[in-house]
């Protein structure tokens, strides 16, 4: 018969097995603090610096997989515009029709990202909510959000210009965004950066929007 002392490890094995079994998937409820939106474009956040050795045994490719997901951009003829001379055209980037960088005093910077997608892309309200989320602003009723929108016309183009600011963010954030339905597509002009610089550039941005021309 097995000696009693040989059995001491079986309860330990059983405890381990039970501990592993306790991790069964189940629905959980909890109270959590409000989410804060990412302050910088997170697409680049997953990459290791050049020459960095791999650090740990976990998959790092999740974000890269997402970044390569095919989301078609609008095809067909593009809108035309005339940009102010102090706006610097940046090299072409994926998903974007164009990017401009604006340099201000004391190293202040702003960036205008121009994108276009087929259809109405969820509609004006959903996209305004998305921009608010990016600034870390709380969810708000559509009627309140609509109050931040100015309507501009550039020929046949109807432009919705939104101005959102989050002074409580660190650093404070501001976004000037224009949504322009054109043909079967919707164009987005998003100007982000130093709030002071955006305040200075806002008249130029409105003039820029007025130069938009349908093809």
């Amino acid at each position: 018969m097995p000696p009693i002392r040989a059995l001491f490890f079986f309860p330990a094995m059983l405890a381990l097995g039970l501990a592993a079994g306790c991790r069964e998937a189940k629905v959980t409820t909890y109270r959590a603090p409000k989410d804060t939106a990412p302050a910088t474009p997170p697409a680049a956040a997953s990459a290791l610096p050049a020459d960095h050795p791999p650090i740990a045994g976990t998959p790092a490719a999740t974000s890269a997989t997402m970044a390569t997901t095919p989301v078609p951009t609008a095809s067909g003829a593009d809108l035309k515009w005339a940009a102010p001379a102090n706006w610097q055209l940046a090299p072409a980037a994926a998903m974007r029709k164009a990017t401009y960088t604006i340099a201000g005093e004391g190293g202040a910077k702003a960036e205008l990202a121009i994108t276009a997608f087929p259809g109405d892309v969820g509609g004006e309200a959903a996209n305004l909510t998305r921009w608010r989320t990016q600034l870390g602003l709380p969810d708000a009723p559509a009627a309140d959000i609509a109050k931040s929108v100015t309507r501009i016309e550039a020929g046949p183009l109807k432009i919705a210009l939104a101005d959102f600011a989050n002074d409580k963010a660190a650093p404070p954030a501001r976004l000037l965004g224009a949504i322009v339905p054109a043909g079967d597509s919707t164009w987005f002009f998003k100007l982000t950066g130093s709030p002071a610089l955006l305040e200075k550039e806002k008249p130029a941005f409105i003039e820029f929007l007025k130069t938009l021309k349908a093809p």
């Binding site: 997170p42 997402m66 970044a67 997901t69 989301v71 998903m95 969820g122 998305r130 989320t133 990016q134």
Partner: peptide, 18 residues
Amino acid sequence: SAQISPDSPAPILRAAQS
């Protein structure tokens, strides 16, 4: 979808579904 997230590189996918 896991790709509909505020972290998405595609602007259209950053909207919260409320």
